[in-house]
Measured scan of single mutants.
Amino acid sequence: MQRVNMIMAESPGLITICLLGYLLSAECTVFLDHENANKILNRPKRYNSGKLEEFVQGNLERECMEEKCSFEEAREVFENTERTTEFWKQYVDGDQCESNPCLNGGSCKDDINSYECWCPFGFEGKNCELDVTCNIKNGRCEQFCKNSADNKVVCSCTEGYRLAENQKSCEPAVPFPCGRVSVSQTSKLTRAETVFPDVDYVNSTEAETILDNITQSTQSFNDFTRVVGGEDAKPGQFPWQVVLNGKVDAFCGGSIVNEKWIVTAAHCVETGVKITVVAGEHNIEETEHTEQKRNVIRIIPHHNYNAAINKYNHDIALLELDEPLVLNSYVTPICIADKEYTNIFLKFGSGYVSGWGRVFHKGRSALVLQYLRVPLVDRATCLRSTKFTIYNNMFCAGFHEGGRDSCQGDSGGPHVTEVEGTSFLTGIISWGEECAMKGKYGIYTKVSRYVNWIKEKTKLT
């Protein structure tokens, strides 16, 4: 034993070699072989497995989906700052455009905790909710729209109204504003409101030439003092309507412009014939205590009207009353817009006519005020429907199939267009061939041609 100890002390290297040989010859039971080890760690190889990531292109799944990435790591994937920024906006807080917040056709661009709407022409605001041009839906104005110097929408209202708090709607500024039905039992019968379409306001006024200088022999019209197929109006439903009495009662109609003036057809009036105007009328054979009678003290036909040349060209006249009318729910003026808007309103496509005229061709006159909704007829169809001249200051309205029309005794009465609950004068009943005849239409004086003249002559002093 002493000898062994001496050998170990003198030859430590020998001992180490012996131990190493023993270990190498022993069977290893701690580690699995290569094949079995792979069965336990069965993990798919990654895209760049075996390579240094710093030297390969980034992978979106590896960089940002398996674990949260930084902007720089995302930049490695896209290799483009702009594309990385677009991805980053949604990656950080989701897609803010998912709810489609942009209105009126706006395009949404996502941002971090926010979004941006790219608005089409005519709109602005956070969600493109603000109209900035009158060309689109009248700028959301209830009545009139004008573009300011910086191309912003400025709404306005006709006389007797003021802008509401929203700067879009119009509200009454006087007790009985024009064009409004205020009798409670008839307010439910107000005709369907007309909503502004998209309009090209630059070209809204037709490029028409008034044929002022045409000389033409007097034409022989049949029954051209021209509501057939209409309905009984309720008291106060058309408070701007008046009836004219002269040699015979209810020979023509008219509309209240203001307390002192009536507008009617020029062919209705004769110099030297006494005319009485009755406002607030409903049943011409009954006294309903809503009527107001006034005498006409002055007749002003349009300066281009000449019955000797043509009885229905420039067929418009103004009547001055001896005493002002007292405005109330049964006696209310009709609204008159400017030339541009009167023309736009007419193009809405349908209007209402009213009167006490004959209820059928050569038949009896109506006792109760009649009204009828009539569609506008395109000019080409209008011209083809008659052998008589249709001037540019006239328009056609009615039904091709016949059966409904204005008729004798309705002449001078109103053709009105309702705009968001307020009625505007767009025409004056003038003439036609018979009444409600198939293929024939009622012919009306186009008020847009005469609004400046009306307003100039009827100013209240």
Rank of each mutant, 00 (worst) to 15 (best):
F55G: 10
R379M: 15
G58R: 06
G125Q: 01
I284T: 11
E323S: 13
I214C: 10
V153T: 07
H302N: 04
A233P: 09
E61D: 15
T332H: 06
T458C: 06
K339D: 07
T264V: 04
V56G: 15
I275L: 11
E193L: 11
T215S: 11
G13Q: 10
G439D: 06
Q370Y: 03
P375K: 15
M437C: 09
Y330S: 03
Q241V: 09
L23T: 03
V181G: 10
F196Y: 10
E401W: 14
P414N: 10
S430I: 12
D212T: 13
T332I: 08
A192F: 08
S329T: 14
E323G: 04
P324V: 04
K311V: 07
L425S: 00
R46C: 04
L325E: 01
C178M: 02
C396Y: 00
T381H: 14
G125H: 02
N127A: 04
I7E: 11
K168C: 04
Y201V: 13
I40P: 15
G363T: 14
T458P: 01
C178D: 01
E54Y: 08
K146E: 13
Q185K: 11
E72T: 11
N135H: 08
S148G: 08
G427V: 01
I262D: 01
T461S: 14
V202D: 08
N166R: 02
K347I: 03
K126W: 06
I17V: 08
V181M: 13
A308M: 10
G230K: 12
C335D: 01
W88I: 15
S156I: 04
F221P: 13
C170R: 01
D410Q: 14
E340H: 13
C28K: 02
K234A: 12
N393I: 01
V451E: 03
A307P: 11
E165C: 04
A265P: 03
G105Y: 03
C178Y: 00
G254H: 00
Y312M: 10
R404D: 13
V273I: 07
E286D: 10
N313D: 07
I256C: 00
T194F: 13
V451M: 03
K126Q: 15
D95G: 06
K234G: 08
E98R: 09
N80I: 04
N147V: 10
V359W: 12
E340S: 08
K247T: 10
A192E: 11
P333F: 00
G432H: 06
L327F: 14
Y371W: 15
S204R: 12
V263T: 02
V447W: 01
N295V: 08
C396H: 02
S148A: 08
V326R: 09
V92H: 09
I15S: 04
N151K: 12
I454V: 07
V331G: 01
E10D: 11
E86T: 15
V4Q: 09
G363H: 13
Y352D: 03
A308G: 12
Q216W: 10
E129K: 02
I344Y: 12
T276L: 05
F221H: 12
D110Q: 07
C382R: 03
A265V: 03
I334V: 15
G402V: 15
F238R: 04
L41N: 15
C252W: 01
S365N: 13
T186V: 11
F121K: 12
V153Y: 04
P414G: 12
G236E: 03
F399G: 10
T215W: 06
F121T: 15
T287M: 11
C117E: 01
G105Q: 05
H302T: 02
S25F: 12
Q167A: 07
F388A: 05
E288F: 05
T186D: 12
I214Y: 13
S184P: 09
A207T: 12
F78V: 15
Y201C: 07
Q167N: 08
C134V: 02
S354E: 02
E323L: 10
S354L: 13
S169P: 01
C435W: 03
A250V: 09
N295E: 11
N393C: 03
E259F: 03
E142L: 04
L103R: 08
C69E: 03
N100D: 11
T81L: 05
P177H: 01
T381W: 08
Y305P: 02
K168M: 12
K234Q: 07
E433M: 08
P324C: 03
D95Y: 05
P239L: 00
V183R: 09
C69F: 03
G229A: 11
L189D: 12
G94E: 11
A266F: 02
L425Y: 01
V195Q: 14
E72D: 15
H302M: 02
G351M: 02
N5S: 13
N306T: 03
C155M: 01
T158I: 09
V331P: 01
L321Q: 01
N393K: 03
G280F: 02
S169T: 10
T422Y: 04
S423C: 08
K347Y: 06
K89M: 08
R373W: 04
K440P: 07
D131F: 12
H34T: 13
G236Y: 05
M65N: 15
S423T: 10
I17H: 03
E340Y: 12
G230C: 10
E82F: 04
L376Y: 06
T225C: 05
E66H: 05
K89T: 13
C119F: 01
K152F: 08
E35Q: 12
I214E: 14
P235T: 06
N135R: 07
E433F: 10
T417R: 02
L211R: 06
R226W: 07
W118P: 02
E456Q: 14
A192Q: 08
S169H: 06
G412E: 03
P44H: 06
